[in-house]
Amino acid sequence: MSKAYLTIDDGPTKNTKSITDFLIKKNIQSIMFFTGIQTIKNRKEAIYAIQKNCIVGNHSFTHPHFSELDLDECISEIELQEEQLNLLYKEAGIQRRYRIFRFPYGDKGGKNKDALQKYLKNSGFNKFNDNKITFPWYYESGLNKDIDLYWTFDFFEYKLEYNNGFTFEDIIKEINEMNPKEGAPLLAPDVYNIVLIHDHEKCEKSLQNYFYDIINYVLDQGVEFIKPEFIKPRSWLYI
């Protein structure tokens, strides 16, 4: 059986509450990566997700390409959203246990990559416990050493909102691909994946219930979503 950790980018949106309720019914604990702009727009939905046991991580304040910013701008993007997340947890009445970060677009900062990894480590961000990920390319790329949380499988469902011929059938094809051009196979036996899906209102307008239909399909194929684990800050080495 395939196992996976569910991560959800770009929230919160007006859909976040219903997504949260759906995940509760399916007994899935997700990591939701929120941006600052969306947090300000949809504060009630953000607080609801926290109160319902979703783990909320930092996805920057404005969702930029970090390789297009200087180091100080990158750090500002992270710290501005840290302020928002601390306020959210306080307003939700929930103790914040983890500080997790994901770069928008998976863009780790270009020439500032090493400096940003050291910043995340020294600032006490939690590293996701990825020791069950066994794909060789994950280690060859050094993703196991990075403090930020990357992914191994992307549904690419965000393409639905572009109306460029990408369909739900294309998503299903990607799910069933055993030798994908990008990432790792989701349905291969005895593998662990870090799965990426997005909370986008434009996707919902393009294809109603896309989020629920994708997750239900994956569950029907035997994928088990499991609870994420994290390493305590400063208990790892970044080389």
Score class of each variant (00 low, 15 high):
residue 186 L to P: 09
residue 213 D to N: 12
residue 37 I to S: 12
residue 182 E to T: 15
residue 155 F to W: 03
residue 30 S to W: 11
residue 213 D to H: 03
residue 89 Y to V: 11
residue 28 I to A: 01
residue 207 L to G: 07
residue 91 E to I: 00
residue 39 T to V: 04
residue 230 F to Q: 14
residue 52 K to F: 01
residue 44 K to M: 10
residue 185 P to T: 01
residue 164 N to Q: 13
residue 202 K to W: 09
residue 17 K to R: 12
residue 131 N to T: 08
residue 33 F to N: 11
residue 164 N to C: 06
residue 220 D to S: 12
residue 190 D to K: 07
residue 126 N to H: 15
residue 48 Y to R: 03
residue 6 L to A: 07
residue 65 H to A: 03
residue 118 K to A: 05
residue 153 F to K: 11
residue 130 D to Y: 09
residue 220 D to P: 08
residue 147 I to A: 01
residue 112 N to T: 04
residue 196 L to M: 10
residue 193 N to D: 09
residue 9 D to S: 15
residue 1 M to I: 06
residue 112 N to Y: 04
residue 64 P to C: 01
residue 47 I to Y: 01
residue 236 W to C: 03
residue 81 Q to T: 10
residue 149 L to F: 14
residue 176 N to F: 08
residue 109 G to T: 04
residue 213 D to Y: 07
residue 161 E to R: 05
residue 104 P to C: 08
residue 100 I to K: 07
residue 168 F to R: 07
residue 166 F to P: 00
residue 97 R to I: 14
residue 82 E to H: 09
residue 24 I to K: 11
residue 54 C to K: 08
residue 76 S to H: 05
residue 191 V to A: 05
residue 194 I to D: 00
residue 116 L to E: 04
residue 34 F to L: 07
residue 115 A to R: 07
residue 148 D to I: 12
residue 219 L to C: 11
residue 37 I to W: 07
residue 195 V to N: 09
residue 164 N to D: 12
residue 52 K to W: 04
residue 178 M to L: 13
residue 125 F to A: 04
residue 114 D to F: 10
residue 9 D to C: 14
residue 150 Y to Q: 14
residue 184 A to F: 09
residue 83 E to L: 10
residue 22 F to D: 02
residue 156 F to P: 00
residue 153 F to W: 15
residue 40 I to H: 14
residue 95 Q to P: 01
residue 185 P to S: 13
residue 177 E to P: 09
residue 206 S to H: 06
residue 4 A to K: 08
residue 3 K to F: 05
residue 64 P to S: 01
residue 173 K to V: 12
residue 155 F to K: 11
residue 181 K to G: 14
residue 92 A to V: 11
residue 90 K to W: 05
residue 8 I to W: 03
residue 23 L to D: 03
residue 210 Y to L: 05
residue 101 F to C: 12
residue 42 N to D: 09
residue 58 N to L: 11
residue 234 R to H: 15
residue 205 K to R: 10
residue 141 S to I: 03
residue 191 V to K: 02
residue 6 L to C: 06
residue 124 G to A: 08
residue 238 Y to S: 02
residue 58 N to K: 03
residue 29 Q to D: 02
residue 193 N to W: 01
residue 136 P to H: 14
residue 177 E to L: 10
residue 30 S to E: 02
residue 153 F to P: 02
residue 160 L to F: 04
